[in-house]
Amino acid sequence: MNIMLNLRAVRGRAYPRVIGALREPSWMLWEVVLPMLSIAAFIYFYRSLNAPKEFEGFVVLGGVMTTYWLNVLWGMASQFYWEKETGNLQLYLAAPMSKMSILAGMALGGIFGTTVRAVSIIFIGVFVFEISFVISHPFLLVAIFMVTLLAMYGMGMMFASLYLLWGREAWNMNALFQEPIYFITGQNFPVKALGPTVAMAASVIPLTLGLDAMRQLLFPEAAGWGFLDPMLELGILCVSAVIMLVMARQLLAFMERKGRETGKLTMRWQ
């Protein structure tokens, strides 16, 4: 494997996303304002129920992590589907680098743009809604955040491979992975409330454990709502990240071969 070639491919694919995020301020406006509307609605909803203040913090944290989840869905998982629709996919397949480098570039570029949005949401949460975060274990918090992202984007790569041959199913499947996933991962509430069986099943999605661990670390007064110990959750997330990335690689190779055999890689408007 030519490492330099693949690193150049990673940089090349990340570049338009980073530049695009900075060059189109109107995108940034929409992407910050849109999640804030629903975040604000959920915060006022909790206020109407006289919920403890930390629950409002759960909403902001959920909103931050949801922006990454949405980027995983629409910026990673469905990306090969869009590339196929716009006619770029065959160019990627004809180029000599690994397709995983393309996905890694997408992920890095996507994380950059999404982080700008996430920071804006935290900023608004702290200064407009007066949410207080207590950072008692900064290294553990950063480690959990990073590993959660790694596992989530690994999952996105896996979906991207699966969606390679799909038409509108890909778009619809992504749409389906929003509200129902927000519910089972405990986007705005402690996942423990769903009971151990559902919470355990939901842990297949890295967002669940990542959110749960970060909730415990950022809102110690609500630690009783934690599903598992944050250290254990970090361990599970590490294993999950490795499994996702390995499976993504295997699936990508399999689906690409399948696509070449069936001639579906260049089919548009299915």
């Binding site: 629950f55 389906l176 129902p180 519910f183 402690p190 409330a193 709502w225």
Partner: peptide
């Protein structure tokens, strides 16, 4: 099933938030 899952998911999210607080 697809057509109803998203709205049901959104409703359950709110119901769960209510359940936790109450």
């Amino acid at each position: 099933v697809y057509n109803i899952l998203r709205p049901v998911g959104a409703a359950l999210l709110l119901v769960a938030m209510f359940y936790v607080v109450t």
